[in-house]
């Protein structure tokens, strides 16, 4: 069942255009949003979170449009747009103390659990954290209020291979609990490891939005890995 529906998103910039982007995110599944740098992943995610104003199209969550239901919908979402680039000199404890008040479903037990799992220190400021740890702060916040959908922009970027693996395993655990995970990445092995569905964007256009197996059947040549398929498709060689 579709829990997030993106329909016909368009956004025009002087040097880039998001063209009629449409796809669905299914309940209890992991959807990998893949594309090279500058393909439109972050623009799409920002439009999905109402951080940018699209020229056209709409985004529905739980069957309701984001426009007009933003507060209610955002309570049920966990999201991060890359790294923590705000309040660099405030202690994590103070930031969390403010943020938790906005969520009626804030789960202190889950917060403590993930704080320990990610090895984060509440007394530190974002300025004192590495890029990888900043990504973990965003994830910590997203996971601490029993979100039904996680929308994460490049959560694995900047993480060491061990942390990346832990994170992808965590996605699989969350999926078992019924959480839908939508994450963007340019690392194809992330998709291979845990995604059920692939949404592939190139030059602002959705090339494919299919279950992983179906994607392979439709686009991969015999004996070709997902990585090789995508590299070939990026070169413009498609076999449909």
């Amino acid at each position: 069942m579709s829990i997030v529906s993106v329909r016909g998103l368009t956004k025009k910039y002087p040097s880039f255009e998001l063209k009629n982007v449409s796809f669905d995110v299914a309940e209890g599944r992991i959807t990998g949003f893949i594309g090279r740098n500058g393909a439109g992943k972050t623009t799409t995610i920002k439009a999905m979170l109402n951080l940018i104003h699209p020229d056209g199209g709409e985004v529905d969550y739980f069957g309701k449009p984001l426009a007009g239901n933003e507060t209610e919908i955002k309570q049920r979402l966990g999201y991060s747009t890359g790294t923590v680039n705000w309040y660099p000199r405030k202690k994590l404890r103070d930031l969390v103390d403010t943020i938790r008040r906005f969520y009626g479903t804030w789960d202190e037990v889950a917060y403590r659990k993930y704080l320990e799992m990610f090895g984060l220190d509440e007394q530190k400021t974002p300025l004192e954290l590495s890029e990888g740890m900043k990504v973990k702060v965003n994830l910590l916040l997203a996971l601490s209020h029993r979100a039904e959908v996680l929308i994460l922009d490049e959560p694995t970027s900047g993480l060491d291979p061990f942390s990346r693996n832990e994170l992808l395993d965590l996605f699989t655990e969350l999926k078992k609990e019924g959480v839908a995970v939508f994450f963007s990445t340019h690392i194809i092995s992330d998709i291979e490891k845990c995604a059920d569905t692939i949404v592939y964007i190139s030059k602002g256009e959705i090339v494919a939005a299919l279950p992983k197996e179906e994607f392979a059947v439709r686009y991969s040549r015999e004996g070709e890995s997902l990585e090789d398929t995508m590299l070939r498709m990026e070169r413009g060689e498609r076999n449909e």
Partner: peptide, 17 residues
């Protein structure tokens, strides 16, 4: 300087809030 507007917009509130 603290990028407060983005921080605030990421909170579960409407942009008007």
């Amino acid at each position: 300087e603290a990028n407060d507007i983005v921080f605030s917009a990421l909170l579960p509130v409407a942009k008007s809030s």
